[in-house]
Nucleic acid binder design. Sequence first.
DNA 1: TTATTTCATTGACCTATGTTAAGACTTTTA
DNA 2: TAAAAGTCTTAACATAGGTCAATGAAATAA
Lengths: 195, 195
Amino acid sequence: MPYSELIQYFEQYVSLTEEEKSHINSSYKRVKLKKKDFLFKQGERCTTEAFVLKGTLRSFYVDSRGNEHVLNFALPGWWVGDLSSFYHGTDSFITVQALEDTDLLVIDPDVKEDLFNQIPSLERVFRIIVQKHLSSLQTRFLSTISETADQRYNNLLNKIPNIEQLVPQHQIASYLGILPESLSRMKKQLLEGKK
Amino acid sequence: MPYSELIQYFEQYVSLTEEEKSHINSSYKRVKLKKKDFLFKQGERCTTEAFVLKGTLRSFYVDSRGNEHVLNFALPGWWVGDLSSFYHGTDSFITVQALEDTDLLVIDPDVKEDLFNQIPSLERVFRIIVQKHLSSLQTRFLSTISETADQRYNNLLNKIPNIEQLVPQHQIASYLGILPESLSRMKKQLLEGKK
DNA sequence: TTATTTCATTGACCTATGTTAAGACTTTTA
DNA sequence: TAAAAGTCTTAACATAGGTCAATGAAATAA
């Protein structure tokens, strides 16, 4: 059972026969990234959808002034990719990079289409994944437009309690939409004012 | 051909038999909203997915301090709803309200499921719609975190050139994520400084 | 038609966060 | 192990946009 984490993940949603499990195992390939390696880059087509086995990654957007904005971190058990680019062949708006040595299971669009034909029940699983993706993007958007930086900081700590151990602080600042200097200042005020 | 706008919309993506067209016609119901009427509200389940025939609507989120944030405007030919709530029965995070007298074609989750069973090719149409929805949310998010208010103002004018005629200015400010006072000031500076 | 609510503008002042720059500490690379 | 690169903190100053308050115009309701 080589890719048991992934199989387990799918079996949260559907049950699979031994034959289906072996289809899954032969469709996904194991990929290892070194710290700082890219999975794919903004401006290229994203032909990869990956399930994280081990490690930490970040997805980010570079704006017209060259500033990076972290959209999300990805931890074991999470998916990374750019849906639009993967399915429609458009250029990706984001870059995905490993923040430490990372193990992934990846698939490309053609193999995924074959897999859907072999195991139709996976369509349902991925419909749910897309739905969750959409709803988490909506939550993040609402939080960004309606909450202060320190509320967003608390949200992040609730979502990923050990985030401070996993990624450098300037990446956290970028996720929050502020500069590292501002995060430093904010943390100091939180400690002092205990507010 | 009672609902020809909707049929035409679908036929951009797939071709339909006369029988299928009549299924569609009997699945959607016409709904008229008066200015200020709500289609559904934040905190309730959204059991309606609507295609706009005539009029203008806005979707907005009310945060914990009671401030409203406009997420989007909807014009003829656009869809409104809350996907998560519609499909999963969770409470909606947004409210949809008519900004003027509005005509819609609406469907509820059960009827939509039947319609998918009768016309499987519509699954593809709605997969594309969800994809577009996701990608436009991503664009809006990236613009919100990386651009200044006056760049976002320009984006909106490009997307909906006659928006100033369609909705009051404080709704535009809310969409941009600033206060009406700030939009007033900004427009004045744009005129003066011609910047 | 008048009364009432909604809307847009302006001004004075305030605050969170950006900008720039410097210094110390840590990790990676040669 | 030395040099280089990356990281975090602090401080002084700048700025976009928020807050509050007042006013007049426009739209809606009585």
